[in-house]
């Protein structure tokens, strides 16, 4: 393949991580991350890949245009997983701060939409991260 003058590199995406915990609020966090992806706000990315030390996923996350970490409870597994991989520039959304508590938050459209709106607000107001290789 010959060299191209126009950069064909992929644009740096906005990445969304969810704790996707086993509880009701974990399911809300997971569904909100998927809805944000469907709505084009960013791309949900595998938190397990970060925890598993997959180097390509860690380096891609460091190069992201923006990062949102959604945690369902104050244990903050998503935040801690990112920080353990030395990723610190991200927006953090905790469902318990929105009054959604473990065991008393039925999974449904209303809490998911509330998290989606808060996630959208945080990403719009947050500092940009890496950027495209072509920028």
């Amino acid at each position: 393949m010959s060299a191209k003058d126009d950069c064909q590199c992929s644009k740096a995406p906005t990445l969304i991580f969810s704790c996707s915990g086993a509880s009701d609020v974990g399911a809300v966090a997971d569904q909100a991350a998927r809805k944000l992806t469907r709505e084009g706000v960013g791309n949900m990315f595998c938190l397990a890949g970060i925890g598993g030390g997959i180097s390509g996923m860690i380096e891609s996350t460091k190069a992201a245009a923006g990062i949102l970490a959604i945690d369902s409870c104050p244990i903050d597994c998503a935040r801690k997983t990112l920080e353990k991989a030395e990723i610190s520039a991200f927006e953090h959304l905790r469902l318990s701060d929105l009054g959604m508590n473990k065991g008393s938050t039925p999974v449904g459209d209303d809490p998911i939409s509330q998290v989606v709106e808060e996630g959208r607000r945080k990403l719009n107001g947050g500092a940009a991260g890496g950027g495209s290789c072509c920028s």
Partner: peptide
């Protein structure tokens, strides 16, 4: 398969050390 979302990326001995940067 490397888990890379942003290119160009550089891998050394199978480990990705950089992505999305020149």
């Amino acid at each position: 398969s490397f888990g890379v979302m942003s290119t160009p990326a550089l891998a050394v001995d199978g480990k990705v050390v950089s992505a999305g940067k020149l």
